[in-house]
Design a protein around this nucleic acid. Structure first.
Lengths: 223, 223
DNA sequence: GCGCGCAAACTGTGATCACAATAATGGGGA
DNA sequence: TCCCCATTATTGTGATCACAGTTTGCGCGC
């Protein structure tokens, strides 16, 4: 039944599973607070429980999944105002810092790349395509952060983004896709073009801040 | 051969393995840059490769172990000045923040607990007992951070501490156990006793800053 | 004596099975 | 009709095996 794959192709199965669950979490396909199980995920993805176990362990270490200490059962962390506040603080420190560092190494090719991605972001917003928006927005931010050349900080940002992901779905559920329409991407691009570290820091901070405010409002309203 | 343990005792095997490897990393028993393998770790710990796999995945997600993307082999991340600088920045943001929050909720029992731990720290320093010092120092800081009641930030601090751990061994190797003799623990305790959030923030920041400076010097000297 | 090449050992990965513990569900009694 | 207890299903965990890729190392030929 199972066609044993050639292997050494590219990515291991557990990485694909990781990415699949990650996407499911970010786009909110798995509702926060809901319990999941290894075998159910494995069946859903058509793989054995083994790679799912690996992926889940990784996600749990990144706090994208919670493990009930009593019965060791898995669940999606529920969205609380307290958690959101902590995640906001952390993001507002790491991500502007990464943007500032990136500004110092920015060049024309990066600017062009960002403009292309931002056009995609706007297109997704115009169409109201939530998944596409979230993917493009993620790509925009991390295209910048990657340029900072700060592996450790970038990984921190990635982990935070993953934890914040589920919150975004709440925003869309409340105010619709145009709830996040206003962003500071243009400002950020301009600052990077001018190699203005402080400007990039401020632009990203403002972008994040506005987004987190909307999430906070949504969480409070849904409580 | 293997006596199947009663199970439901307390902790799962993979958690014990995780803790064992974690300690080995922090105390520097596994040299940075060195490669490790699942089976060798399993044999050394007297368990099957299975729980080791779980523990290693977790450590890799926390960036306490590195996975070579080409051949998927495991190794201990090597200590570079760049990594240390990023870790320092991150710690200097998270940990003082946690200390400040903890100060708001501090009480007499916490102060007493911290005084006891700090006495142990001093004792370990006096004896030149490196392992005991590192354990006690860790206990001191996280007894404070735990009081902040900020789960997300505390987890971030834990991850950073784990990544910094191997660097500390370098300090001891260079300047001896009294290289870190001067700490700001007394200041921190005083600030917590007075519920002085800013004082606690400053004390912890100074404590970290001094320690990281010594590590930086040690890394540069050993390069 | 020095390389080259092939075989053996070792690596991570995935599947399958066994086991104990918890959760879910059913029926039978009051 | 409702509640309690026993049976069943499902859960995470760990062991063992199979497999393919990589590294290691040893012996043979030059």
């Amino acid at each position: 039944m199972k066609t044993r794959k050639p292997l050494a192709d590219q990515t291991a199965v557990h990485d694909q599973v990781y990415e699949a669950i990650r996407q499911a979490l970010i786009t909110g396909r798995i509702a926060p607070g809901k319990g999941v199980s290894l075998r159910s995920l494995a069946a859903e993805l058509g793989v054995s429980p083994m790679p799912v176990r690996d992926a889940v362990r990784r996600l749990a270490a990144e706090r994208a999944l919670a493990i009930n200490p009593a019965n060791k059962r898995l669940s999606v962390p529920s969205l609380t105002a307290d958690r959101l506040e902590q995640l906001s603080m952390a993001r507002l420190w790491v991500e502007p810092e990464l943007a500032a560092r990136a500004a110092l190494d920015a060049d024309a090719s990066l600017v062009r790349q960002l403009q292309a991605i931002d056009a995609d972001v706007d297109e997704a917003l115009r169409l109201g395509d939530v998944d596409r928006y979230m993917t493009a927005n993620h790509a925009f931010h991390f295209a910048i952060y990657e340029r900072a050349g700060a592996e450790v900080l970038e990984a921190m940002a990635g982990g935070l983004w993953l934890q914040v992901g589920p919150f975004m779905r709440v925003v869309f559920g409340r105010v619709g896709a145009d709830g996040l329409a206003a962003d500071r991407h243009a400002e950020a691009i301009a600052a990077l073009k001018a190699k203005d570290a402080d400007g990039a820091r401020r632009a990203i901070a403002a972008d994040l801040s506005e987004g987190m405010d909307k999430m906070r409002a949504a969480v409070e309203a849904s409580a």
